Amino acid sequence: MSSPSSPAKPPTRTPTRGRPPKLDPDRTIATALDLLNEAGLDALTMRRLAEAMGVQAGALYRYFATKQDLLTAMAERMLADRDTAAPEGAGQGWDEELAGLARALRAALLRHRDGARVFAGTYSTGVNTLGFAEALIGTLREAGFNSGDAAQAMLAVVSFTLGHTLEEQAALSGEAPADPERLRQAVTESAFPHLTAAVPVIADADFNAHFEFGLRLLVDGLRALER
């Protein structure tokens, strides 16, 4: 994912004369995602969304009572373009199926600017979100894990993937870029010998490698619970 440029103000759509533009949930969500990608989450307001759609702000509340309701619908839409079934590859083990689902979630969030921030704190009961959870829990239950462990594992995978992607998108946004050199200067071998030895890895911006390492730890931990 490339670093987005400075937030640009979305063009204002001037309402046309005559028949009011059609307003429906699907178009509202799609326009909200467009604005998100253009300007980021902080700039996404109900007023700006209404302007982009050529309607009065109050009209949006017909479908979304609060901005949080809108964010939940946006989070649900983010998962629409991923396969809710287990990843391709007949005969692969539960570990690869689980890892594939985690990677698919991360990819879905990375497709949208501030995608992880939008997704965090939402609890959609839409078919895409529930389908993802069903696939992950089902993969583990079919492998012999009990329902409780499978549910806890699903929560752990989602929390890890979401947290990692939040940090990744923050670093890539350019708004709060990581500064490896500042870290290197702050860590002295006399005061922090162990941290000094680890700085090359900590300061490395290879987010794929960091994600895969953490994911492997989760999978290895689950193997200890395998029946």
Rank of each mutant, 00 (worst) to 15 (best):
G18K: 05
M154W: 03
P87Q: 06
R13F: 10
F160E: 07
F145I: 00
G148R: 11
Q185W: 03
S3C: 12
R82A: 12
L71Q: 08
T125E: 14
A205P: 02
A151M: 03
Q56S: 09
I202R: 02
R227V: 06
T84L: 10
K22T: 15
D114N: 15
A133C: 05
R106E: 00
L105P: 03
S190W: 11
T161L: 05
R82P: 01
V201A: 13
A191V: 13
L162P: 04
R48D: 12
P21T: 05
Q169R: 02
A156W: 07
A108N: 02
T84W: 01
L225V: 02
P180F: 10
E38G: 09
A52N: 10
G91N: 04
L136S: 09
G126L: 11
D83C: 11
V157W: 04
L136Q: 09
L130R: 11
R82V: 15
F132D: 00
T84F: 08
Q152V: 07
L215H: 00
L105V: 09
V158E: 14
H210N: 08
D114G: 11
S190P: 01
A178P: 14
F192H: 13
T161H: 07
G89E: 00
A8L: 14
T161Y: 06
A197V: 15
V201C: 04
Q185L: 05
R17V: 13
L49V: 12
P180I: 12
G93Y: 08
P25S: 15
P15T: 07
A99G: 13
M46W: 01
R47Q: 14
